[in-house]
Simulated scan of single mutants.
Amino acid sequence: MRSTALHTVRFAMEQGREVFAVPGSIHNPLVKGCHQLIKEGAKLVESAEDIIKELQIYMF
């Protein structure tokens, strides 16, 4: 919850950058930071398609 990576991601969110997060098991305490980011506005990612749709990237 206090890692440098999470601090960097929160800073990116404050700057209006797109932030994506892949959730983990609710039983794993190591993913609490990722879940918190989703609560704070990071986009939930379950597949690469989620990112493509969010960024409006079309594969030809």
Rank of each mutant, 00 (worst) to 15 (best):
L44D: 04
H27Q: 14
T8F: 09
E54C: 08
K53W: 06
K32L: 07
A48M: 02
Y58Q: 15
R17K: 14
F20N: 03
V22N: 08
L44T: 07
Q56I: 09
I52Q: 15
I38Y: 03
R2H: 13
L55W: 07
M1H: 14
C34Y: 01
H27N: 13
L55Q: 11
V9W: 01
P29E: 13
T4W: 06
C34F: 01
N28K: 05
Q15W: 07
S25G: 06
E40S: 11
I51C: 07
P23V: 02
K32F: 03
I51Q: 07
V22H: 04
A48C: 02
G41H: 04
V45F: 01
T4V: 10
V22F: 05
M59P: 15
S25R: 02
K32Y: 05
H7Q: 15
A42F: 03
Q15T: 06
Y58A: 14
K32S: 09
H35C: 10
E40G: 10
R10D: 08
V9Q: 02
Q56T: 10
Q36Y: 04
S25Y: 01
R17L: 09
I51G: 04
E54A: 12
H7V: 13
E49I: 09
Q15R: 12
T8R: 13
L55S: 09
G16A: 13
I57L: 12
G24C: 03
R10C: 04
